[in-house]
Design a protein around this nucleic acid. Structure first.
Length: 552
RNA sequence: GUCCCUGUAGCUCAGUUGGAUAGAGCGACUGCCUUCUAAGCAGUAGGUCGUGGGUUCGAGCCCCUCCAGGGACGCCA
């Protein structure tokens, strides 16, 4: 990447300056390359001399002059200048810039990919909602975050596995089963009361109706525990199927659907707890089993096995992470959780450390609350109360592309308002259309070119010399850097801003530069440029999981 | 009470890990369709970056105080 090339140039220059006695021997700070916000300052800049000034003991400007003097000419760089208070600015060569159009076209679908990850095994687990009810709006945020992050990490050279953890064991599922049982009895005209902690949503009633229609006869022969178990099994499958379908509507898919129950079935659970016990992090007290997180600086210990002998969800989460790191040997793991799990983060990291794994290998991203509004009014979302605004409902109203873009356009750790009415109204001037429109416009140009028999194969990119053309090329060259930033910060929202920037420079180019014209050579060159732009826009939309329309 | 997240233009939010004159979209205002899609373009207005201190060549970004909004503190998940 260009940034690395420039870093190397500076490093070499500093070494040479030292050998020439112009700079003292010191440990070099990391050479950071920045993008100046003011285009007059060039394409890239380094503030290395400002950072060195204190140790060297001379003015940053003088240091910058020394370093700049030793920077060798290169194919990419037009000029190296020094600006107060001590920046070294790099401007790219137009000739090199235009050549990148050919290079992008050659890379095609792999353009933007980088080697940062070097094939490291990384797992990203997200959504993982209890299969006891449909996905609601808030879950969509985590889903989009995870799936986009996975796309970006994949492009950054990681070997990414997307996983959904199915909580098919424990209390909540038990309550789900009993809710189904009660609704079943009611449906066949018997007296039955919903359990106190039951799921009151109408979807349970609908589901029971469907189950009876399909398997009523078979179930009629069962009763009590047997019936509850059978209903639960069918219900979980149906619920999971619906969750899967809802996610697919938004182009969110998984490589692995991991069952919590399997941790018990293959005794991973015992192994994990045993491992903690050996290391002295397990204590028996007050009739329960505790994870001694206070030994690791936590506020309090946490129960792993209850007085009645049943494990808590924390216990299976320990086993689950044992499995991720020690069984399946992921180099790093990303968990995306909802805001209600925030308090769980530090103790989970403590567990990972207690298992002998570097806690740095686990990153937990908290996707903050989504407040739903209709007009000005806040809509309460609660799975228990039955007042659900489902994700499916949202996708059907505003469309998958707009949903993805909207959820993606904010950092995960800030809360967001989602106004349903606004989202619906917005559909005409939503930024998503602005970006897609740029893509469709290019497609339209290419159609016209084809009609007129214009061809770009012999296009000479060195003809692309005007400002709008060069600005467009510069913006296209940013994609690998965006992917790098996302891989490092795990913040995929940068994509939405990049997409808008790219669309803006294209629309501006479009206004100022005619592509298909009587000038055959220029037409060919510009056709290459817009083909490259279409490719980069398409890649960006693809990374965000959005469609890139040919016409609108 | 303890811990976590947030506070930047009228509104919704970015801000490349401490750099140069703090940016975008929406909204407001002014122009631009005989030429490849006006779902577009060009421009104007709009800011004590919640508050007060500190760290240093340099702070929206780092540290501390306080204020405001939200969330978590269960042998629920």
């Amino acid at each position: 990447m260009l940034k690395q090339t420039i870093t190397e140039l500076i490093k070499k220059a500093i070494i040479e300056a030292r050998q020439a006695g112009k700079l003292p021997e010191l440990t070099l700070p990391e050479i950071a390359i920045e993008r100046p916000q003011n285009p007059e300052h060039g394409d890239y800049a380094s503030s290395i001399s400002l950072k060195l000034a204190r140790a060297v003991g001379t003015s940053p400007l003088a240091i910058a002059d020394e370093i700049a003097g030793f920077i060798k000419p290169s194919a990419e760089i037009e000029s190296v200048t020094v600006a107060p208070p001590g920046f070294i600015n790099f401007t790219l060569k137009n000739e090199w810039l235009t050549q990148q159009v050919d290079s992008i076209l050659k890379d095609a679908d792999t353009y933007g990919n980088i080697e940062l990850g070097q094939g490291k095994k990384i797992q990203i687990e997200f959504v993982s909602v209890n299969p006891t009810g449909p996905l609601h709006v808030g879950h969509g945020r985590g889903a989009i975050l995870g799936s986009t992050l996975a796309n970006a990490l994949n492009s950054a050279g990681y070997s990414v596995e997307k996983e959904y953890y199915i909580n098919d064991a424990g209390n909540q599922v038990d309550s789900f089963r009993r809710s189904l049982y009660a609704r079943y009895l009611q449906a066949i005209g018997k007296e039955a009361e919903m359990p106190a902690d039951g799921y009151l949503g109408n979807y349970i009633i609908d589901m029971v109706r469907e189950i009876i229609a399909a398997e009523g006869e078979k179930l009629g022969k069962l009763s009590g525990e047997e019936l509850t178990t059978a209903l639960g099994k069918i219900g979980l499958e149906k619920m999971l199927g619906q969750i899967k379908a809802d996610l697919e509507m938004m182009d969110v898919t998984f490589d692995v659907w991991f069952s919590e129950q399997s941790l018990y079935d293959n005794r991973q659970y015992e192994t994990a707890i045993e491992s903690l016990k050996k290391r002295g992090y397990i204590a028996e007290r007050e009739g329960a089993t505790w994870f001694v997180s206070t030994a690791l600086g936590e506020d309090k210990d946490n129960v792993v096995v209850r007085t009645d002998g049943t494990p808590t969800y924390f216990a299976t989460d320990i086993a689950y992470h044992y499995n991720k790191f020690l069984e399946r040997k992921f180099d790093s793991v990303i968990d995306i959780w909802g805001a209600d799990h925030m308090g769980h983060v530090s103790r989970m990291k403590a567990v990972v450390g207690a298992l002998g794994i570097d806690p740095e290998q686990l990153t937990v991203i908290i996707s903050q609350m989504v407040t739903l509004r209709r007009g000005g009014e806040v809509v309460k979302i609660s799975k228990r109360s039955g007042d659900i605004v489902t994700l499916r409902e949202l996708v059907e109203e505003v469309g998958a592309d707009a949903c993805r873009f909207f959820f993606l356009s904010r950092t995960a750790d800030s809360q967001m308002d989602f106004d349903l009415e606004l989202a619906k109204k917005q559909s005409a001037d939503n930024p998503v259309y602005y970006v897609q429109y740029a893509h469709a416009r290019i497609a339209s140009i290419l159609r016209l070119a084809q009609e007129k028999g214009a061809d770009s194969t012999d296009g000479d990119v060195s003809l692309l010399t005007t400002e709008p053309e060069l600005i467009l090329i510069r913006k296209m060259l940013l994609l690998p850097e965006i992917i790098e930033t996302i891989a490092q910060t795990l913040e995929p929202h940068h994509l939405t801003y990049y997409a808008q920037d790219l669309a803006t420079v294209f629309h501006s180019f479009y206004m100022q530069c005619r592509v298909v014209s009587d000038d055959k050579a220029m037409t060919a060159a510009r056709l290459k440029l817009v083909r490259a732009a279409k490719l980069v826009l398409g890649r960006t939309l693809g990374l965000m999981g959005m469609t890139a329309p040919e016409r609108m």
